[in-house]
Design a protein around this nucleic acid. Structure first.
Lengths: 114, 114
DNA sequence: GGAACATATCAAGAAATCTTGATATGTCAA
DNA sequence: TTGACATATCAAGATTTCTTGATATGTTCC
């Protein structure tokens, strides 16, 4: 059974707030790099640290930022941690983008004004 | 004729930098709101100011941020200015997102590590 | 020309974000 | 149990971004 929380009952403002958090998570080159690396599946932090050239605490900060935004999830295994993408988040971003893309942007020139 | 600038000759790092600028532009609820408003075509600043509840210089700041990122373009007409979306920028973002989405994220669990 | 208007820019402070180095936590192996 | 290791967290400073109020620029109308 689905939860009783009403779907899409967020106000437009609340939706924007959430979507802006998602975009913010990808607004940094290091985080973008991490997301690219995770595109083919799970990776452990040590793999990621080798791939992006970042100090440990810096990497940890960016991974947490991605996690807080809901873009990645983690899985603890022994003394290391694996991160993976959350496809739902990517879909949500793509969806927000499509709403704007599909509306024929730049279709007309505004005439009346003020 | 197209310009002689080579296409896609940017390094991955430079591409990430550019894409992160695009995402940054949408990482703020006010700017997201503006982009939504522009989805159906051009609007003049006064329209936008009435729609998003923002002081004049604040609105101007956010429009410039969008413009600097290449997400909108403007057109001056008499004493007012019309803004419109630049579909290329939206496509570029959607493209970056798709590269990640299409790679079956979360497909496998990493076994080997460190 | 001068006033009203639309918009942009600037300067300064406020707030958020990022980086770095230090320390904490939990796990494994000897 | 001790030590090495993987990762997270914290604290402080650096940097960036955002907001606000003031002023500048260019346009139209009288």
């Amino acid at each position: 059974m689905t939860s009783p929380v009403k779907l899409q009952r967020r106000s437009p403002a609340a939706t924007r707030m959430q979507v802006s958090r998602l975009f913010h998570a990808l607004s940094d080159p290091t985080r973008l790099h991490l997301v690219e690396l995770l595109a083919d599946g799970e990776h452990c932090v040590c793999d990621l640290m080798a791939a992006v050239d970042a100090a440990q605490s810096r990497l940890s900060f960016h991974l947490r930022t991605l996690k807080d935004a809901g873009i990645v999830a983690d899985r603890k295994e022994g003394r290391w941690v694996h991160y993976r993408l959350r496809p739902e988040a990517l879909e949500e971003m793509a969806g927000a983008l499509n709403l704007v893309r599909e509306a024929r942007p730049g279709a007309w020139r505004s005439i009346t004004c003020c």
